[in-house]
Design a protein around this nucleic acid. Structure first.
Lengths: 177, 177
DNA sequence: CGATAATTGTTATGGATCATATCAAATATC
DNA sequence: GATATTTGATATGATCCATAACAATTATCG
C-alpha cells in the first residue's frame, strides 16, 4: 500500500460547502464533507515524494501516448543507445531491473522492432542489445516529446534554476541516502 | 516496469577492472564489465525522482521495522489522528487510496488494535475511524522514530534549508503539475 | 585435461499494489 | 414512495517486484 493520486470529488463538494459554512454547530450538520487536514503528512518527505513521482509519471505517459512508451521502456532505449553492445544483465542491473523481469520488457521492445537481441560471439550465453533503426528514430522522437511537453512544463512550474537544484538533491538522495 | 534499485555487483568488478584498463584493444578483451554511462538518464526528472522515492521508502521501512508500519499505514494513522470522526471514504480518498483497497489496509490496522471502525449514528452506512489508545501510543513512537532516524538523516544529507526547499518543490509538483 | 563452480537468459511462481465491476444496506432525491 | 446515490465490502484482473530453478555456456582450478 503506497500513495496514489488523491481524490477531487469530495473537494468539489467541500468548495460548495465551505462557502456557507457554519461554525460546526455540533450534531449531525447534514454534513457536506469538509476538506481534511493533512497536518504533518504534508511535511513527510516520503509522502510528498511519492505523490510528485506519480504526477510526473502520469504526465510522462500522457506525453508519450503517441509513441506508447512507458518510463521504463524509455529508460531502456536511452541506456542502450548510450551503451551499445552491452548484454541484458548489464542494462537491466544498471536500471535496477531484475533479470527475470527484464525479459518481458525486452520481448515487448523487440516485438515492436525497437530493440534487438544479438547473440554475442565472445560469450554465446549473452545477448548483446542494440537499437534498431526504427528504435533510434522512435527514441529521437521520444526525446523531443519529453523535452518539449514534459520537462518544459517543469521548467515553467519551477524555473530553470530550481529544476536543476531539485534534480541535484534527488540525485543525492538516490545515491547517498 | 518501473525503476528499482540499481546493482552494485558489476560496479565492484568495474572498479577492479578500470585500474589496469587497456585502451580497448578491440576484440574480446576478456572483458571485465565497465560501468555503464547513464547519459541523459541522469537528467530525467522522472527517473531520478523514482530512484529517490525508492530509497526514501526503503529507509523508512528500516526505521519502522520495530513498529512494523509501512508508509501507507503510517499515513493513515497520521490522517486519522488529525481528522478523527471521518469515515473510510474520506480518509482513503484523501490519501489517494481506492476504497476497495482501503478495506484490507484497515483490516490490518484494526486487527492490530491500532485503529477502530465505529458505526456512525448519523449515517449507518459509514464507519467512523478513530485511533485506539494503542494506536495513539504507537503513532507517537512512530513519529519519534521518523524524526530521529529518518528525517534527521535527510537534514544531514541536504541541510535544513535545502530539505525545506525540496519539500516545497515536490509539493508544487504534486499539486500543480 | 576434466570436474566443479559460476554466469546468462529464461520460465515459473508468489506477493504486493492498483484498478474496475458489482453487491447489499442505508440514505438521498424527487 | 419509487428511483438514484452512497458506503463499505467482495471478487477479480492487471501490473510490478522478488525468488527459485533450469539449460546452455563459460570460468576456475585441481
Amino acid at each position: 500500500m503506497t500513495v496514489s493520486k488523491p481524490a477531487e470529488k469530495s473537494a468539489e463538494k467541500a468548495s460548495e460547502a465551505t462557502k456557507g459554512r457554519k461554525e460546526a454547530p455540533e450534531g449531525q450538520s447534514q454534513g457536506l464533507a469538509e476538506a481534511l487536514q493533512l497536518g504533518e503528512l504534508s511535511e513527510q518527505l516520503g509522502y510528498v515524494l511519492k505523490r510528485a513521482q506519480l504526477k510526473v509519471f502520469e504526465n510522462f505517459l500522457r506525453c508519450m501516448a503517441s509513441l506508447q512508451l512507458t518510463p521504463a521502456q524509455f529508460s531502456v532505449l536511452l541506456l542502450v543507445e548510450k551503451n551499445p553492445g552491452r548484454n541484458q544483465t548489464e542494462i537491466a542491473s544498471t536500471l535496477g531491473i531484475l533479470r527475470p523481469n527484464f525479459v518481458a520488457l525486452l520481448d515487448n521492445l523487440e516485438s515492436r522492432d525497437l530493440c534487438a537481441r544479438i547473440r554475442s560471439t565472445n560469450d554465446r550465453r549473452s545477448h548483446i542489445l542494440v537499437l534498431t533503426d526504427k528504435g533510434k528514430a522512435v527514441l529521437t522522437r521520444a526525446k523531443k516529446l519529453v523535452a518539449t511537453k514534459h520537462e518544459s512544463r517543469l521548467n515553467e512550474l519551477l524555473g530553470q534554476a530550481n529544476r536543476e537544484a531539485l534534480l541535484g538533491m534527488l540525485s543525492k538522495i538516490a545515491n547517498e541516502f
